[in-house]
Amino acid sequence: MLTRLFVHELKLAWFKRQDVLLPLGFYLMAILVFPLGLTADIHFLQKAASGIVMVSLLFAQLLSLERLFKLDFESGLLDRYRTSSYDSSIIVLVKLLASWLAFLLPLLLLAPIISILLNLSFNTVIAMILVMITGTPFLTMIGGLGAALTLRVKQSALLLIVIILPLYIGPLVFMASAMNAAASGLPYNAELALLGAMSILSTALCPLLIGWIFRMLD
């Protein structure tokens, strides 16, 4: 059943491509525009690259959050899930993992383009990819918490960003510093381990909390 639900969610992401592509388009454009606005100095860009990439990633993720449960809420499917004998938390976990994958995969495909745009070294690109893989589960899971809390609010995008952005500061610091370390040839295992720990912890806890929030919805 879980695989069926997972496939169902991926299909949804595919058919609602615009919801996935909008944040990605935003991400790519932000990275394109930053160098134009800053300077053409390659050395400066290499130094600023980690910040540019990670901040853009953060905003792209924030843009994608509002949609997480909205469609199911509006179509009544969420009520159907809640009254079914499946645990809401399990359904939430599957949904969040699917939307994480739908967000991460195209992001990784863009990595080579970004490395050219920002003149990144091979090591830095590898670090960027690893950081994205280990860090984005946390972003999606915590974001899901915000999406669940603001589910009944119309035009919830701004409220959601206000709630979630402070929680993204921590991973942002580690993500950018891992990339910085890689750029200067230093090890970045510690940052990856921390990001991974945050992601695992949030993957374990957030679906439970979201399931609990759903039980409290009227």
């Binding site: 639900l5 169902h8 058919f15 509006e74 009544g76 159907r80």
Partner: peptide, 25 residues
């Protein structure tokens, strides 16, 4: 089996995909 005012039909999926999803639930 609870069916409210909103029946849980996913607009972007086809009829048969919707039905299979219901069957699974």
């Amino acid at each position: 089996l609870y069916l409210g005012h909103q029946l849980g039909v996913t607009p972007v999926l086809t009829v048969v995909e919707n039905l299979k999803h219901f069957a699974m639930l």
